[in-house]
């Protein structure tokens, strides 16, 4: 049975339909790369799963438990959020907290973990993303790549069953994407289940276990990465790959992934 099943999500903003019935199932240990042009609904899909947006219709089945997306209770939302972590495009670190405090804040405040225990766990997570030596730094003192790694540590600390990544490297300078991607690759190797909205084709090709291609609010194609990149089934996917890979042929992009 799939760990997470998304069924028939619909979402419109001010009458503009962004998701038009998206269904997707994710197995434990899957790394799903969600590709597509901007405006195709990828980010909204991710945000609906975590209730950062309230979907108009659709449901989640998480570990066999059914939750309706439109009228979920606060309890349901809290339960789903507890099982998920979210990594934002703009990191969204708490700017008045140090790197370590960013990781421990939720543990101490929301999960009532004793401070010492939270700090030990926090340091472990910072070590995992290679940021232990910056534990006392504030976000303003860190580069974008470092901030994103702290944000990943913050997500990991809550012991999620799945991590949702919303274009985790899109706000980074090209030379900083590598450090974030390598952390993500390491998580994938360790068997973490991940749903990744990304424009990093090399990550999708080499790390993901499944590629989902979205356009105009629907999933057009769902394939294994080797199939998707070698012989995409849809003309739209082919057109997308032509545009993206054309841009990505520069050697700089290659070396960062």
């Amino acid at each position: 049975m799939a760990m997470l099943e998304i069924k028939n999500i619909h979402k419109a903003f001010d009458g503009l339909s962004v998701l038009k019935g998206v269904s997707l199932s994710v197995e434990k240990g899957d790394v799903v790369a969600i590709l597509g042009k901007s405006g195709s609904g990828k980010t909204t899909l991710l945000r609906c799963i975590n209730f950062l947006e309230t979907a108009d219709d659709g449901e989640l089945v998480f570990d066999g438990e059914i939750v309706h997306l439109h009228n979920a209770s606060k309890k349901d939302i809290a339960r789903i959020r507890k099982k998920t972590a979210f990594v934002f495009q703009n990191y969204n670190l708490f700017r008045n907290k140090t790197a370590l405090q960013n990781v421990t804040e939720g543990l101490i405040v929301a999960r009532k973990m004793p401070r010492a225990e939270a700090e030990a766990l926090g340091m472990k997570m910072l070590e995992k993303v290679g940021m232990a030596d910056k534990a006392a730094s504030y976000p303003s003192q860190l580069s974008g790549g470092q901030q994103q790694r702290v944000a990943i540590a913050r997500g990991l600390a809550t012991d999620p069953e799945i991590i949702l990544f919303d274009e985790p490297t899109s706000a980074l300078d090209p030379e900083l994407t590598g450090e974030v991607l390598s952390v993500m690759r390491q998580l994938a190797r360790e068997g973490m289940t991940m749903l990744v909205v990304t424009h990093e084709m090399n990550f999708a090709k080499n790390v993901s276990s499944k590629v989902v291609f979205m356009e105009d609010g629907v999933i057009l194609e769902e394939s294994k990465p080797e199939d998707f990149f070698r012989q995409p089934k849809q003309e739209r996917s082919r057109a997308f790959l032509r545009t993206i890979l054309g841009e990505e042929a520069s050697p700089k992009q290659e070396e960062t992934v």
Binding site: N50, F51, L52, A78, R81, K82, T84, A85, F86, F88, N90, N92, L93, F94, R95, E105, G106, L107, V109, A110, R111, A151, R154, G155, T158
Partner: peptide, 18 residues
Amino acid sequence: VPRGQLEAGYCVGMSYMQ
């Protein structure tokens, strides 16, 4: 204050008032 921090707080389980 950048709003994203509110969402980040929700995602780690904090309440609005927290």
